[in-house]
């Protein structure tokens, strides 16, 4: 897998001179159907000091499937638009020290600073509309970059705080010990507070390997946090940042 990735990157760079001499792919419309597997995380840019260690980072199956069309504009340049169904998820386990958290259920609420173990689950199903500039570096390899807009169809941001203690309110508040079985730990769920629309930028490469089949690699970088700015419970702004490896089929 790593090899494939290296090859793609290598091709992208070494093919540039070759392209300079060609560059005559204009006026055509490429339609590609793709499926891919995404990996990454929903994380703050800059880890807060209250997170002391990342104990595990499990990748939940994150799939993407969709169709896009690229219109060639000449000189190797083109413009791409499409529609993808995507799933971005992760499970992370961290150890915290004085990490701000809040548990809300109905009319009851418990908030404060948590020192202990936090298990975080994030799952987001979304429809994504990418708009990208493309540049064909050769007949088989093209680079693409541009913004995307995602509409979330389902969202989950929940977790468990266990094996530690909460200081209610602030560090001088009552201390509540938390254990490692249900009833002794605190579960939280901020799914409803998540943003419905996400905006980001993506960059990647398509490499047509065999006949109409090809491989692709993309990096999707969320520019908007997964929560609106008015949501203060989760201290840091969390950005979805995912890499996708995929295969595509080119129809035309």
């Amino acid at each position: 897998m790593k090899k494939v990735f290296s090859i793609i990157v290598a091709c992208a760079f070494f093919a540039v001179p070759a392209l300079a001499q060609k560059g005559e792919l204009s006026g055509t419309l490429d339609v590609k159907a793709r499926v891919g597997y995404s990996i990454g995380g929903t994380a703050p840019l800059g880890m807060p000091a209250t997170i002391r260690s990342i104990d595990s980072f499990r990748l939940t199956p994150s799939l993407t499937a969709g169709v896009d069309a690229t219109l060639s504009l000449g000189q190797g340049w083109g413009v791409l638009a499409g529609l993808y169904v995507e799933n971005k998820g992760m499970k992370a386990e961290v150890t915290t020290k004085g990490y701000r958290m809040e548990v809300v259920k109905g009319d009851s609420r418990l908030s404060g600073l948590f020192t202990g173990h936090v298990q975080q689950d994030v799952t987001q199903w979304m429809l994504t509309i990418p708009v990208k500039a493309t540049y064909a570096v050769s007949r088989t390899v093209s680079l693409k970059a541009g913004p995307y807009l995602s509409v979330l169809l389902s969202k989950n941001f929940s977790g468990i705080a266990s094996d530690g203690y909460l200081r209610q309110g602030d560090p001088t508040g009552p201390r509540i010990n938390m254990g490692n079985v249900e009833g002794e730990w605190a579960t939280y769920d901020f799914s409803d507070d998540m943003r419905r629309l996400q905006l980001g930028i993506a960059a990647g490469v398509d490499w047509q390997v065999y006949r109409n089949f090809g491989l692709s690699a993309d990096l999707n970088w969320g520019l908007t946090g997964i929560f609106p700015g008015s949501f203060k419970t989760v201290e840091q702004t969390l950005y979805p940042i995912y890499g996708t490896l995929g295969i595509f089929y080119r129809f035309f």
Binding site: I39, G40, M47, A49, F57, K97, G98, P171, R175, Y242
Partner: peptide, 21 residues
């Protein structure tokens, strides 16, 4: 990839204790 995702997200030095009991 995770490292890219968590760019600049290395573990910071431990914050000083906030508790005063």
């Amino acid at each position: 990839i995770c490292a890219i995702a968590l760019l600049g997200s290395c573990i910071k030095s431990e914050p000083l204790n906030q508790e005063c009991d």
